[in-house]
Structures are given as C-alpha cells and as structure tokens.
Design a protein around this nucleic acid. Structure first.
Lengths: 332, 332
DNA sequence: AGCGCTCCCGTGAGCGCTCACGGGCTCCGA
DNA sequence: TCGGAGCCCGTGAGCGCTCACGGGAGCGCT
C-alpha cells in the first residue's frame, strides 16, 4: 500500500528486554507498567535494558489484550475552511474527556476520497463521524459495518445516526431578514457539489414561500473559497442586475462575496446585502462583519462524539438537530 | 482511565464467522481480504455470515502480523488558531501520500497536557511531530523513547530533530521594515508563555542592533487571541505613548492589535503601524490587510512528515530551517 | 490404472503482549 | 521443627489474526 516502501527499523520486543535483563517477560511487563510484585533493583535493571534497546511496547499486542483504547475516525471536507477546525475543536474536547484517540481524514469533498477514507477508517478506528457528501457514500460506510455518525448532511439523512442542523429553519431566518429589509430579488451563492443540497433547495423553497420571485438562475455555484465567492457574485450580478442581496452557502463564500462587491465599488450593506451561514468567528473580523446564520459548531462536534459513543455501545443515538439563530452584524 | 466507563458491545471474531459459515478461519480470511484459492459460492456464504455478525477484523490482531500501518501523532497548541489548521493541512497531505494515519492532540499550550499527549502518543503512534512549549517537555519525549520531530520551537532546539523557522531573520525583516518607514519607538505584542521565546528575544536583539531604544516594558504579553491583541495594544499605548508601531507575535495578535487601534480611533497604518508573523491567509481579509512575516506553514507540515519518516527509518533527518519573507500588505 | 495437475480448503505456528496461576525463597511465631 | 505468611519471580495460555504449509477431491493425460 505504501507508495514509497521505506525501511523501518524493527523494534525490540519484550523478549529482547527480558533476555538482556536476565529476567522473564512477565517481570519486564511489571517493570514497564509499574506494577507491584517487583524488586526495586530488578525494576531499575529492566528499565535500563529497555532504554538501551529503545523498547516501546507494541500497541497492537497490547490492544489485543486490553481492549480499552477507543479510536474515533473524523472525516472532514477541508481543513482549510475555518468551519472544520471549529468542529474539530469540539470533537477533540469531547474525545479527550473520554480518553479517546482521534484520527483525522481530509477528503476535499471528493466522493472517491471519502470512500477511501471510510475504508481505512473502518480498518483503523472503532467508530467514525464526519461529513459525507451523499447518501451513497454513507451507504458504503454501512456496507463496511463501521458505526458512523453523520454530521450535518446536506442531503436527507433519513434514519442515519448523527447530528443535523435545521437548515430550512436557518435559511428562513436569513431570507426573512433580507426580505424584511426590503429586498425583493435575492440570489444565492451556492457552494454545494450536490444539487440536492439542503441549503440550496431550502433557499429556493423559502424564497417562494415568502412570495419572492426566484429561479435556478438566481443561484450561482462556486468553489468554497473566498475567491470563489468573489467571482460568483460578479457572475451573478452580471446575469441578474436586479438582485440586491444574496444568501451565501457559508461564511467563506459570504466573505468572498463582500470582497467582490467592494472591489466592484458596491457598498455593503447600503447597496447590496449579504448573509452567510455558520456564524464563524472569522465573520466578525472582516469589514463589514458578516451577518450570518449562526450554528454552534463546537457543540456539534461534542454531540458527534456522544452519538459515536452510543453507536459503540450498540444503542441507537437519539436524533439531534441543532437550531441555528441569526446573528445580525454588518453585512445585512 | 476512561472517566465514564461505557459498555462496549463486544465484536465478533473470525472464529465466530467461520463457525457460522461452516468453514475454517483461513477461509474466512481469504474471503474478507479477497484473496484467491476460494470458491465464489463459499466466499459469498462467508461474507454473508460476516455481515450478519457485523464482523470487522481487529486492527490489533491484524497489525500484530503485518506491521505496515504507520501512525503519526501530531501535537498542536490550539486548533482554534488558524495557524494550526494550516499546518495540519500540510501534514495531512504528506501523510496521505505515504498512507499514514494522523492522530491529533490539542494541548492548549499547557505543558502538563503536552506531557500527557506525549505519553499517549508514545503508546498509540509510531512517531510524533508537533509543537512543544519547552525543552523540558521535549526531554520527556526522549525519555519515553518516541521518535519526535519538533516544529518551530520558540526555544533553542539544539540537536533536536525537526523543522525550524529562522525567527531572527524574520523578525529582522519586520523591524527593518518598520524602521525604514521612520518608526523609532517600536513595541511588541508578545504571545509566548516562555520568556526565553525566540520571537521575543529576537525582537529585542534586532531592535537594539538597529539602534532603536527598546526595553522590557516595550513588550506587552497577551493571550494568543484577537481579544488578547486588542487589549494588549491598549495597555502598551497607555504605558508607552511614544510608541508608533508594534511587532506582533503572530497574525492573530496583529489582527487584534489593529482592531484595538481602530476602536480607539487610531488610523492604521497612518498613525500606527502593525506587523504580524506567520502570514496567514486570514490577514488578507481584514481591513487593513496585515503586513506580516510570511512562513510557508503548509510546507512546514510536509517537512515534518518527512523528518518523521527519517526518524522512523532510524536515520537522523537533516536539519531544516525555513526562511520567512516579508509580505507587505496594508497595516505597515 | 496411475500419474500429475489444478482447485479448494484446513491445520499448526506465531506475531507481542498480559492474565491467571504456581512456586521458590526468606522470615517469623507456635 | 515446621507451617504459614509475605515477597518476588517465572510458566502456560490465549487475545484475533495471517503465513506457510499440507492434503483431499476432481480432472485430463499417457
């Protein structure tokens, strides 16, 4: 599997240490795990032998016996997007509290890499959690037999365990806010790969529900980056000059949109309003600060670990859906 | 160790599957790892049995035999600081290329938690890399016998393997830039816990080298957060009104300093200049964009993995020191 | 018929460690 | 003198899996 098969110095075993110290395996074990029933002097001799051989007990052999260490595999889309460190922060905290290990997989939103990550995760971790682009990928997790807690699926998770976000509710807050400010033509800067994505479909549904005129061409897709957002807002305004506000898929795109607008000489929020999604701390640092649909992402991470723990215990975790709230800052 | 001892459903073994399918262990193994020498029908029957028992091979038993999977333990200080996701990004990429696993430890700059992380890392990973606050903590790693690549130690790493940053060179770029712009009284917003920290000591040394008047009270310590930076700049200016520019320990603090200045009605860079360190993408998004000492952090992550690979092979990695460059943006 | 081949499948051993034992030694009190 | 209690240490077994074998069944060939 290793692309570059590298030499790997073979490690000393407990037997090697025992031989060098002139004792039995068991005595070495006693010394290393400092248990009782060992003479202080013997212990010292064993420890010295261990050091000189650079001995470290094999985690595999040890794990085989005491099945205590738990490893959680966390799948994220892009660690470059501040959303995910925020999430990881919550996961890490909860994992540490339970004395769990966390192994990280970054898939770059690529379904193939998601499947790959899922496969190695299934082999290396006890349980998984994270973001999967489509129900098909999740099905693969089930096929592998790994317990997996799905996070904020843009798609309809159905009975899949995990923690969700009330996306429709959040989008409603955003669009209502824009409509209340008098905007009648509202567009969207979309960042989803899958057209079935909830943020997109919710936006369309909510806008129509509010009696706004909106169609597919009021939505402009973009890569989830600041540059993507800036470019998308340009394209969208060129196509639909009547638009006076946008709802962005996330805060990164919102920041990009604001930048694009400012660069084009458009004043925000006076001439054009922007609302983001996620409520990242980053949004407060830019000028103007981004009005956004806030979600407690850290808590989402903690809840993910809790759900994973339930799965591990063979239980079905209670479905959790986080309710977003609108944080009105400066951009709308 | 587990704070909350939770029930954990015990997993089916290869024996269970063999019994249910009416075959031997070996045949199950052949089916699961899809190897040759097995009848298609038998394979299907075994796989069905495996599925019905929810069988997944134990990574411990498997790892005991084929010693191929490598796990890297990555120790970072605070995933909430954008610097670390940036680094993790590089590590993850390099690790993925080698088919390594990455387990993540966040220590919050707490020496005790660093030692703790080091201990579990020693037990759970093959090799480590990351940030350690002091040489004393690194000594603990050596005592444990874990190969460890130290990243950008603020302290003098001496012969410790890893990848460093030419901090003094970077600081020189920053202070020279400020001095060239006419600033004669330059302060520092420090974020280091340890007073021996290189960024701090280099600042003092470089400033004096350039003939600037500078003392300990021109340095204001602060927690490494935006708020910390904002507060520190206030304290510093109250104490030393003659200061017209600051060098910040990192970009987060620089952003905070700029915010603090703007809130106080001070114009940046017209009335007061700020230079950061790290050159994070975040710095470009704020107003004005942060002039900063840029370091290729992603590359640092990749080099860390390379160093770890060398250590794993029993070799001594060549010392690497990254050379920063000044990125002049708007704040100075 | 007998040989050799292919196709399947099973058996022992062992990876490195810990757990449950068992056993020798010294010392002390009856 | 001897039993019983520590104290220290070693010996088998086994965790769950894979690797190197070995072997039976079925086939075609001479």
């Amino acid at each position: 599997m290793n692309v570059t098969p590298e030499s790997r110095v073979k490690r000393a075993t407990i037997e090697d240490v025992a031989k060098l110290a002139g004792v039995s395996r068991q005595t070495v074990s006693r010394a290393v795990n400092d248990k009782a029933e060992i003479d202080a002097e013997t212990k010292k001799r064993v420890l010295d032998a261990a050091r000189s051989l650079n001995y470290r007990p094999s985690r595999f052999a040890r794990g085989l016996i005491r099945q205590d260490t738990t490893t959680l595999g966390l799948i994220i889309s892009d660690i470059g997007n501040p959303f995910f460190p925020e999430l990881a922060s919550g996961v890490l905290r909860a994992a540490q509290a339970r004395d769990w290990q966390v192994v990280l997989y970054d898939t770059g939103e690529d379904p193939e890499r998601e499947v790959l990550a899922l496969s190695t995760l299934a082999a290396q971790a006890d349980v998984g959690a994270g973001f999967l682009t489509s129900p098909e990928v999740f099905a693969h997790a089930e096929r592998l037999g790994v317990p997996f807690a799905v996070l904020d699926p843009g798609w309809d998770a159905g009975a899949a365990p995990g923690v969700g976000i009330d996306v429709a509710g959040g989008v409603r807050l955003a669009v209502r806010h824009l409509a209340a400010a008098g905007h009648r033509r509202i567009g969207m800067v979309d960042g989803a790969a899958d057209p079935r994505d909830k943020r997109r479909t919710s936006f369309l549904a909510v806008a129509r529900e509010l009696g706004l005129e909106v169609g597919e061409d009021d939505v402009q897709s973009a890569p989830r980056s600041v540059e993507g957002g800036a470019e998308a807002i340009g394209v969208l305004r060129a196509r639909k000059p009547e638009i006076t506000a946008v709802f962005a898929y996330n805060d990164i795109l919102a920041v990009g949109a604001v930048r694009g607008l400012k660069a084009a000489g458009v004043r925000v929020p006076e001439d054009f309003a922007v609302v983001g999604f996620d409520g990242l701390p980053l949004g407060e640092l830019v000028e103007p600060p981004i009005t956004s649909v806030y979600v407690d992402i850290r808590r989402m991470g903690e809840l993910a670990v809790a759900a994973a723990a339930e799965l591990l215990a063979g239980r079905t975790p209670e479905p959790v859906v986080l309710s977003p709230e609108l944080r009105v800052r400066g951009s709308a």
